[in-house]
């Protein structure tokens, strides 16, 4: 809507009209049925009373259910107990709420009332007085004449939180030794064992198409096994050696088509474990990074950038799978100093 239309296209005498419409004021009050019909009002009153009574019954129901239906030891009995107490509680509150709302809507005075607003801003006099008082206060401090106090005070106040923050930050991160990201408990000769049982794995037992979830031998005996498990967990997969394309620098890291890859996603660290034996794709269920196991666990889809680290493996004299060494790179998500 442009201005021209109001000014150009109209007969001259209409310029006398105001620019804007007038607010017509509050419409008149329309009485409700309960205002004019005593019968309707009585009915509403009865409904409110009944609803409040139902609410009270709900409370009694919840208490009765609490004492008579304990959870017991089966799924069904726990479900029943939860449900009955819940129904009692729900009845208590839904009926009380409905009663309260119905009462207010049908029986309480419904004449709309007007309250006037005042601007948020204080009046000029108040503002002037406030500003004057602050100025008086400032001059009482004498800060303008004694600048040294100001500097000293700011220094003291700025430093004060450090006495609290330094011990807090210093202690909260444990030993702050982030070099632990680089190592796992894998080492030369350590056996690969089943997760979670800890049973060692014979190479001959890993048939083509198998996917075996692996933890290092002795992991379960550690004081805090989960800390180590979150880095050391490995997925062992056997492919037909014809399907396996190994990089030249990684030859000898596999054993007769058996490869071992870190199960920690290089994206943000979820366990990557959805192995499709036909396509040799390994999918992460969290963000769908897809790794190609036949091709050095290279990323073929999704938000991860780097292949999964490979654990070099071989067999010991008894035919059990063992690690040749630790991983040759940090496992898991990227971090700033990863390559340093």
């Amino acid at each position: 809507m442009s201005d021209e239309s109001t000014e150009v296209g109209l007969p001259v005498e209409q310029h006398a009209l105001p620019q804007r419409f007038e607010n017509p004021g509050l419409p008149e009050h329309h009485p409700r049925l309960t205002d004019v019909d005593d019968g309707a009002a009585k009915r509403s009153e009865r409904i409110v009373v009944v609803l409040f009574m139902l609410s009270a019954l709900g409370t009694i129901g919840a208490i009765v259910a609490y004492f008579t239906v304990p959870p017991g030891a089966t799924i069904a009995s726990i479900r029943l107990s939860t449900m009955l107490i819940g129904f009692g509680l729900a009845a208590t509150f839904i009926f009380a709420g409905a009663a309260s709302v119905h009462w207010s809507k049908s029986l309480m005075n419904d004449h709309e009332k007007i309250e006037y607003r005042h601007p948020m801003v204080s009046d000029t006099e108040t503002r002037e007085q406030a500003s004057e008082m602050l100025a008086d206060g400032m001059s009482d401090t004498g800060l303008s004449r004694r600048g040294a106090i100001k500097g000293a005070m700011i220094t003291a106040v700025a430093l004060a939180p450090l006495g609290f923050a330094v011990p807090l930050i210093g202690s909260v991160g444990g030993d702050w030794d982030i070099s632990k990201f680089r190592h796992t408990m894998w080492k030369k000769g350590l056996r690969l064992t089943h997760d979670p049982t800890g049973r060692p794995i014979k190479a001959s037992d890993v048939t083509i198409g198998s996917a075996v979830h692996v933890i290092p031998e002795g992991l379960n005996k550690l004081e805090h096994p989960l800390d180590e498990k979150s880095k050391a967990m490995v997925l062992v997969i056997r492919l037909d050696p014809r399907d396996l394309h190994e990089a030249p620098d990684r030859e000898g890291w596999s054993y007769e088509g058996i490869v071992a890859y870190s199960k920690v996603c290089t994206h943000v660290g979820c366990p990557v474990a959805l192995y499709e034996q036909r396509t040799h794709h390994l999918l992460c269920p969290c963000h769908q990074s897809t790794f190609d196991i036949s091709n050095g666990a290279k990323v073929i889809f999704g938000p991860a950038d780097r292949p999964l680290p490979q654990l070099p493996i071989t067999v010991d004299t008894e035919g059990y799978l063992v690690a040749q060494s630790d991983f040759h790179e940090p496992v898991g998500p990227s971090f700033w100093e990863r390559l340093k």
Partner: peptide, 13 residues
């Protein structure tokens, strides 16, 4: 048997 995409979980695994 490890049908379709599913890996095989033989009796050793």
């Amino acid at each position: 048997t490890g049908p379709q995409s599913m890996p095989v979980f033989n009796n050793a695994t």
